[in-house]
């Protein structure tokens, strides 16, 4: 039973802990919204209200439209493999006994490592001279692109690193979800003589759907905010081919000091994140079984 505390107790428990949240999250969000209607450039002390100018300019700019495409491409081709491969790894992992923990710890290891450091390592793995990737591809007589300087391939380096970092993490969640499914459900499926494929589609996938929803939301939010691997591997290049919305935001705000446009863009990212989360949660009402 919750009690009504006296005001000093309430103040003690909420006031101090919520100061950082208010000062560095809530207040900045409001300021960002306000700044997005101005033409402030960080240096000059004055600014003007420009109404929706920042937004209309941003939405009609080529850079922005390209960045939307890149972000979408990057997000779709990262999130779907992470979820599908993560699920398959977890299904396979579930069949192991004594080696389960060992394999799991190998798969999960990338999540703990710093993205900056490992992206540096990957930039050398993709190196066309000494990088192991192209040496393997050559040995197999497969096409070996100039990974980091070819616009098409460059996006895939970002995607590959993202998948590498997160797939074991997704497998961990699925592993937990699968291990919590009661054995009796699989036995019931055996009694009804379902094939392995039917078991996966009719039993496993519906029952892990809350995990899938959770991973979808978290991974989409993660991809929208991906920065470290881009700055190390391609810096948005070549020729802007890997410039996502967030990277464009960084360039606008912290290289060109167009604070108005940058904050407007950050609000757009926020709205996109909110809409995608909302859609995912709405869809889940029909397709997620708790």
């Amino acid at each position: 039973m919750a009690i009504k505390p006296n005001k000093w107790t309430l103040l003690l428990f909420l006031a101090i802990p919520l100061i950082p949240l208010a000062v560095f999250w809530i207040f900045p969000l409001l300021v960002s919204i306000w700044l997005s209607f101005t033409d402030w450039d960080y240096i000059s002390p004055t600014f003007h209200y420009v109404g929706l100018n920042n937004y209309t300019q941003l939405l009609s700019s080529h850079d922005f439209q390209a960045a939307v495409g890149h972000t979408l491409y990057y997000t779709v081709f990262s999130v779907i493999p992470i979820i599908v491969i993560g699920f398959l790894l977890a299904v396979l992992l579930n069949r192991l006994k004594y080696t389960y923990k060992f394999i799991q710890s190998l798969l999960f290891a990338p999540w703990v490592t710093p993205m900056i450091g490992m992206a540096i390592v990957w930039s050398w793995i993709f190196n066309s001279q000494i990088g192991p990737l192209n040496q393997v591809l050559h040995a197999l007589h497969l096409p070996a692109p100039q990974w980091l300087s070819n616009p098409q391939a460059a996006m895939w380096t970002i995607i590959i690193v993202t998948i590498w970092k997160n797939v074991g993490w997704a497998a961990l969640f699925y592993g937990d979800a699968i291990s919590k499914i009661p054995r009796s459900l699989f036995e019931a499926a055996d009694v009804e003589s379902l094939s392995i494929w039917q078991k996966i589609t009719h039993v496993l996938i519906p029952l892990v759907s809350p995990t899938t929803l959770f991973l979808f939301i978290v991974e989409i939010l993660d991809c929208l905010q991906a920065y470290d691997q881009i700055t190390v591997l391609t810096q948005g290049g070549p020729a802007g081919a890997t410039r996502t919305l967030l990277y464009l935001y960084y360039e606008l705000g912290f290289k060109q000091f167009q604070m108005g446009s940058a904050t407007a863009l950050s609000i757009v990212i926020l709205v996109v994140a909110a809409i995608l989360s909302f859609i995912a949660i709405r869809l889940s009402r029909h397709h997620v079984y708790y």
């Binding site: 949240l21 560095f24 999250w25 900045p28 300021v31 967030l246 960084y250 904050t263 926020l270 994140a273």
Partner: peptide, 19 residues
Amino acid sequence: ILGTYMLPSATTYIPSYVI
């Protein structure tokens, strides 16, 4: 608090920087 969890932190960077 729940909403802040979904909030991309980039939205707060410029004002936080100024603060």
